[in-house]
């Protein structure tokens, strides 16, 4: 595992390259994070996924979008357009690091929608997009985040003293994460991934793929992810068995 920074001086991105163990396969894997509390919740799980993929022979890169995580940039300056550019930059970085031109993109939750939005961008050109528990579209995802955020505030205020109720959010944040209006508008407008051939849908046991997706394009995971449950928003998501299952599947179907 090698930490790295890449991109421009104005927008330096932070990521990790997980070198393939043993003989490297011809395909490299780029992992696209989800956002906000889901990003925090899934951080260790994404690392485990990268380790499993590397152990199966895939050069793998994971990274933080600009204005999030360890990457540079103020959270209030985060924009979807920047994230789409970040994704293409990350793909280029992965190709340079690995020497592999074939790449597969794994998008977790919102990351699946972001990767899908970048699918046609010059420089990405992934042979396969893998959508892990992809929301049906940006609007439904943001609606869920708002619902969980409101629920969390209500639960906290329920327990807090009358004179120490939480002040209202300033409108530029969601679940404690900066959520500037341009980012909110762009994410809300994101379409869901279309059911097409060059996609694989990973679904946790409490999630489902759109009905139009062919059964052979769905990989069912045995574990529940609890993305929609308030009780779970502060619980780490580390799907080690599911990550192993995906790595084994990819090892069978990719060079």
């Amino acid at each position: 595992m090698q930490a790295l920074q890449f991109g421009s001086k104005q927008r330096l991105l932070f990521g990790f390259h997980h070198a393939a163990q043993g003989a490297a396969r011809q395909t490299a894997v780029l992992i696209c994070n989800t956002w906000g509390l889901e990003y925090m919740r899934s951080y260790r799980g994404v690392r485990v996924l990268a380790q499993k993929l590397a152990a199966a022979g895939f050069e793998t890169l994971r990274f933080d979008y600009s204005g999030t995580g360890d990457s540079q940039g103020h959270s209030l300056d985060a924009r979807l357009e920047h994230w789409l550019e970040d994704l293409v930059l990350a793909a280029r970085e992965l190709r340079e690091l690995s020497g592999k031109q074939d790449i597969v993109v794994i998008g977790l939750r919102l990351g699946a929608l972001i990767a899908e939005a970048a699918r046609q961008r010059p420089g990405l050109n992934a042979r396969l997009h893998i959508h892990w528990d992809a929301p049906s579209d940006g609007a439904s995802y943001i609606a869920l985040m708002r619902q969980l955020s409101d629920g969390s505030d209500r639960a906290k205020n329920w327990r807090r003293n009358r004179h120490s109720q939480l002040p209202p959010s300033d409108g530029n944040e969601l679940q404690g994460h900066a959520f500037p209006a341009p980012l909110a508008a762009a994410l809300t407008a994101l379409p869901g991934p279309a059911p097409q051939a060059a996609s694989l849908w990973l679904v946790s046991s409490d999630h489902s793929a759109p009905p139009a997706v062919a059964a052979e394009s769905v990989l069912a995971l045995g574990e529940a992810a609890h993305w929609q449950e308030l009780d779970w928003v502060n619980t780490p998501w580390v799907p080690a068995a599911a990550a192993g299952k995906l790595a084994s599947h990819l090892a069978q179907v990719l060079r």
């Binding site: 969390s152 505030d153 906290k156 939480l166 959010s169 300033d170 944040e173 404690g176």
Partner: peptide, 8 residues
Amino acid sequence: DHTLTRRA
């Protein structure tokens, strides 16, 4: 609050 969910 404990996790400082408000930017302020």
